[in-house]
Design a protein around this nucleic acid. Structure first.
Lengths: 251, 251
DNA sequence: AATTCCATTCCGTTATGTGGAACGATGGAC
DNA sequence: GTCCATCGTTCCACATAACGGAATGGAATT
């Protein structure tokens, strides 16, 4: 494994802070979320507060993300650029399909939602909106991202995520890798209704280009709206809009 | 000092990544910026790339901030809320004064600029725009933030930043603490033209409220536009707009 | 082809983080 | 007002995990 294990702990704490809402989280909450003893988390949080990565409430019993994260994000030109690049496509997809559209990007072993465009039809999604995350391996956007990598890469990630995925979805299909392979061939991913039965979605991977991370454009809508013909229709729209942004055909 | 020293190193690396532009930074660049040996930085970056906090170019020789930071920022409700809260005030300040207006917030030992509203007059500022940072102790916004803390706190921070401040401004006034004390009494801070001679600015601290971090609203303009009367005028406008947002008088 | 700069791996050393246990603070119930 | 449960904080002996100098491998530049 890659070294710098103590670093991981801080990162896990950051994500745990993000996962809790505006109300913030107590030390015990976070310790539980990251499965580390309280003294360890206490030490990490103290350092993070000092550096502006975390914020303590006046009472001192609640923590939340600090302004440093936001300030760094403002300087993350490549990601800001990515969002700007695709916002127009999301708007057109939402307009043309009537469903909600999402920009999903790989971040470590997760897919995160960086931008959303609500359509006429609004549903509760796996990620729960902007900034939400899903382990790579579940959800159309997430699967499309896996399909945009080499088989080696996606297999490694799926192996790494196995535990987490099974925790979320007990009856996980036996062979995700072959499912991903199928997506590579088809050129799109479709929600299997595994997680939220009423909700369905479609995603098309964005072809790798100039140092940008792996990403995909996806939609979410009511499962009942997604018969076979409609899937083909939505996929075509996604491919058109991606092609329009990249200036070349997507296939 | 607070423990978790290895955590600090990752944070320093993140800031170094942010400081470099869209072009990214090489391993050697970063190692130099954070004053750590290459193998150490290499290890940290490997972990950060794996977690999505950093991004490697296709060639593998350039690093930049990854999407994880942006995703976390989207979930930093308190900071997002802060920016939303003050954006209107910035617009009105820029409108009424004709100068540029800034929301400055404390983040660790720095003041960071979270939002900007350009006025008719545009100048180069200390922070260099949204996401920019300055050590607490220099610049009107930064000084106003110090003035909004207890004397103990501001003195501790000034002592901590002494080295960095002297590096930026060789002829730093002997007693910053008493200058800050003065700002507490006056209720506003004014740029001393220490850094950029042609540029001047004014800042008013936002009174501490409901768990929000220390912050201030500041303006920047041509030094020539800032005679004594004008300073009083701009300060009055800042106080009015802050009061309007907080729903109570400032002063 | 030679040179320089940069990234990467190795590995013995030790500084660093670790976390159980004990303590102290806080707030809610009665 | 007292008791109790929960949470946050400090301490410290211990072992792990990070460290970084030196050597190696690659890539770009002359």
């Amino acid at each position: 494994m890659i070294p710098a294990q103590s670093t991981q702990k801080s990162f896990d704490v950051l994500r745990a802070l993000a996962a809790h809402g505006a109300a913030g989280a107590s030390l015990a909450d976070i310790a539980h979320a990251v499965a580390l003893p309280k003294p360890t988390v206490h030490r990490l949080l103290a350092a993070m507060v000092q550096q502006g990565f975390a914020l303590r409430s006046a009472t001192g019993r609640r923590y939340q993300l600090g302004p440093e994260i936001y300030a760094l994000a403002l300087k993350s030109q490549s990601t800001v650029g990515l969002v700007e690049t695709w916002r127009g496509a999301l708007m057109r997809v939402a307009e043309r399909t009537g469903d909600s559209a999402f920009l999903m990007v790989r971040s470590g072993y997760d897919a995160v939602c960086l931008a959303t465009q609500e359509g006429v039809v609004r549903v509760r999604t796996l990620t729960g909106g902007t900034g939400g995350r899903v382990p790579l391996g579940i959800g159309p956007g997430s699967l499309a991202i896996l399909a945009s990598m080499t088989e080696d890469e996606s297999d490694t990630i799926l192996a790494h995520n196995d535990r987490r995925l099974r925790m979320l979805v007990p009856d996980l299909p036996a062979s995700l890798p072959s499912w991903v392979e199928r997506i590579r061939i088809d050129g799109f991913a479709q929600s299997g209704g595994l997680f939220l039965a009423e909700v369905g979605g479609v995603a098309v991977p964005v072809p790798r280009h100039l140092g940008a991370p792996e990403c995909a454009i996806s939609t979410a809508t009511l499962a009942s709206r997604l018969d076979e013909d409609r899937v083909a229709e939505v996929v075509a729209i996604l491919k058109e809009e991606i092609a329009a942004v990249l200036g070349r055909a997507v296939g």
